[in-house]
Amino acid sequence: MMAYMNPGPHYSVNALALSGPSVDLMHQAVPYPSAPRKQRRERTTFTRSQLEELEALFAKTQYPDVYAREEVALKINLPESRVQVWFKNRRAKCRQQRQQQKQQQQPPGGQAKARPAKRKAGTSPRPSTDVCPDPLGISDSYSPPLPGPSGSPTTAVATVSIWSPASESPLPEAQRAGLVASGPSLTSAPYAMTYAPASAFCSSPSAYGSPSSYFSGLDPYLSPMVPQLGGPALSPLSGPSVGPSLAQSPTSLSGQSYGAYSPVDSLEFKDPTGTWKFTYNPMDPLDYKDQSAWKFQIL
């Protein structure tokens, strides 16, 4: 009977010793046993002879290597770790002494450095960015050149030099007046198309007034536009458009034309069986010896 009264063996659950049927240790109110408190290391007290050895090595170098620390530790009968900690504390003490010396050398008012006064946003004049500046400075420094007289040679050079070769001289006033084509001369031969040399188009003023001019072949195509416009036809070669000034309004060009419109200028042929003959000019830059190549039959 006494065997049943004795408590059973101890069981360990999660490293906790349980005594038989008792489960009081598993209750929430019972805390787990805490780790033992780490003991504080005792402070090391250095003797005068030990301090002399350490100070002598510190005077040589503030960062001794492990071999120098072990050698000193053997002399003063201390572990190497204590020597390492002593050098660490000695360097910190040396830095603190240097900072105190710097503070003593500075004057009393030198510690508080005078800061520059901050400028207020409204006091300083700042350039306004509302208006974009002129990058080319046209509004201040540029002045347009004065327009020359209508009959000045410089204007003629600016007008005619675009179309004339570089080897030719500017046309005088008398020749510029001949550039304007007359109405009857352009409409006299509506079906004849003559190819003149390129030099005649640039230099010869008579080429624009003769039936064999460069633009005589364009007349049949330009004249039928007159009834559609409801007024006189516009002429690209009329009046002052080739003269001194090219800047004319469309209203000033509306009254200039080749001449009176005639039914002869239409595109319809009077004789459907007729042929169109292209007159060959020996001055043509295209060297075609066979003139029969310039004739064709309209079917």
Rank of each mutant, 00 (worst) to 15 (best):
S22P: 09
P107E: 05
D284E: 03
P190A: 09
F278L: 11
D290G: 13
S128L: 08
D290A: 15
Q103W: 03
F201E: 00
G255H: 09
L78Q: 04
S19F: 15
S161M: 14
S182M: 15
H10D: 00
S81L: 08
Q297A: 12
S128Q: 03
S152T: 05
P197L: 09
Y142D: 10
P145I: 07
S223T: 07
T155C: 10
S235I: 15
R43H: 14
M2H: 00
D265Q: 15
P227C: 14
V226C: 00
S266V: 13
A35W: 06
V131K: 06
T45P: 12
F296G: 00
P107F: 03
V13F: 08
P227I: 11
K93A: 14
H27P: 02
Q104A: 04
G178N: 04
S245T: 11
Y258V: 05
D65S: 08
A181F: 15
T251Q: 06
D287V: 09
C94F: 05
D265V: 15
A29G: 07
R40I: 12
R91G: 11
P33W: 12
L136Q: 04
S124V: 07
T273K: 09
P153H: 07
A181Y: 12
D24G: 11
K93I: 13
G110V: 01
Y261W: 11
G8K: 02
S238Q: 09
R41A: 15
L267I: 15
P149G: 03
S22T: 05
I138R: 06
H27N: 04
G110S: 05
P135I: 08
S169T: 03
P190H: 10
F215L: 02
V23H: 04
R37I: 07
Q101K: 12
S210E: 01
P263E: 03
A198M: 04
N6Y: 10
E268F: 14
Q97H: 09
P36E: 03
A181P: 09
A200D: 00
P172S: 05
K118L: 02
T273M: 10
S223H: 08
R43P: 14
R43Q: 11
F87R: 15
K75T: 12
V23D: 01
Q248C: 11
R115P: 01
F278I: 15
G20K: 11
N6E: 01
S204P: 05
V72T: 10
P31Y: 11
V13L: 08
P64H: 14
Y280M: 07
E55R: 11
P272S: 09
G255M: 12
Q84N: 09
Y32G: 07
A207T: 10
Y221L: 06
A117H: 05
S124N: 07
S213K: 08
P211C: 09
A59C: 02
V157Q: 02
E268L: 14
Y63G: 15
S216F: 10
A117Q: 02
A247G: 03
A293V: 13
L16I: 12
